[in-house]
């Protein structure tokens, strides 16, 4: 059963990648988030109650229709320190697991189509496509945000994010999968699509709710955060490429190759590749 192997190989890669990520984030990005949250409590138009109760449960500055979500009931949030780090680690592992499953699927299809690449280079190549699709392209339209920034409605930003990631992934698929010279045109068209649609932005200053000094600090933190998330995402996809390449080679490739070989018309025997 390949599916079981996918799950275990994905989990193995995810624990490694998620743990490395938690370390890198703690060093590069979390200090910026924590610093921004200090100011988040000072936001002028923010509804007072939830912010005072728990600094990182966010008051919705602009998106008024979301007031019901964060307003009434008391919501659980991890306490700062070890508890918050534990949940961040868990989320990192699950995030890495989700990406590993996608990477394995793409690598498997490449193998089915007869790639000559070995597992590690193939994993890294897929990781480059992953970075482009899941980080770089969406981030070009919707920059990394620090807590406290106002932005367009959450749903519309999430929708645009999915559009940008999906379009970039289809651009990569066109380049890798099509033989026609038109594939470059197809890739460019896919890459352009989300920007033709346009990322949702508000016309006001995202930091309008803050007083002068806080605004300056947050602007600085926001700029730092964009760089920090760039390094973090590069490290995420580099480790994902390596870990998934190794896990694919160890647990998936032998079984997949044997199955695909048997489906081939002419010999190319799969010596020594029984699971």
């Amino acid at each position: 059963m390949i599916f079981q192997r996918l799950i275990w190989a994905g989990l193995a890669a995810a624990v490694v990648v998620g743990s490395v990520q938690s370390g890198v984030q703690q060093w590069q990005a979390v200090p910026i988030i924590l610093a921004a949250e200090v100011y988040e409590g000072q936001k002028i138009e923010a509804p007072a109650a939830p912010v005072a109760a728990a600094p990182h449960v966010h008051a919705e500055g602009l998106a008024t229709e979301q007031a019901h979500e964060h307003g009434a009931a008391e919501e659980w949030a991890p306490a700062d320190g070890a508890e918050r780090m534990f949940w961040t680690w868990t989320a990192n592992v699950l995030h890495a697991f989700s990406m590993a499953l996608l990477v394995f699927a793409v690598m498997g299809v490449c193998l089915w189509r007869g790639t000559a690449l070995r597992s590690l280079p193939l994993g890294l190549l897929v990781a480059v496509a992953g970075w482009l699709s899941f980080h770089f392209w969406p981030s070009l339209g919707l920059h990394a945000e620090i807590p406290g920034m106002d932005a367009a409605r959450l749903g519309s930003r999430q929708g645009w994010w999915v559009l940008a990631a999906g379009s970039a992934a289809l651009a990569c698929t066109s380049l890798a999968g099509l033989r026609s010279p038109l594939r470059w045109a197809a890739a460019v068209a896919w890459l352009a699509l989300p920007f033709v649609v346009g990322a949702p932005h508000i016309t006001a200053d995202p930091l309008a709710g803050f007083s002068g000094a806080a605004q300056l600090q947050l602007r600085e933190l926001g700029a730092q955060f964009i760089w920090a998330t760039t390094w973090v995402s590069l490290s995420f996809w580099a480790t994902t490429g390596l870990a998934c390449g190794a896990a694919f080679q160890r647990w998936l490739r032998p079984v997949l190759a044997a199955t695909f070989e048997r489906a081939k018309p002419v010999t190319a025997a799969s010596a020594g590749l029984t699971s």
């Binding site: 964060h70 659980w76 990394a144």
Partner: peptide, 22 residues
């Protein structure tokens, strides 16, 4: 996911991985 529990648990990861968060 919009559930406040999921949001709060995964909050830092959403910010760091540049997902629209709130």
């Amino acid at each position: 996911a919009e559930s406040p529990l999921m949001h709060n648990a995964a909050h830092d990861v959403r910010h760091v991985t540049v997902k629209p968060c709130h």
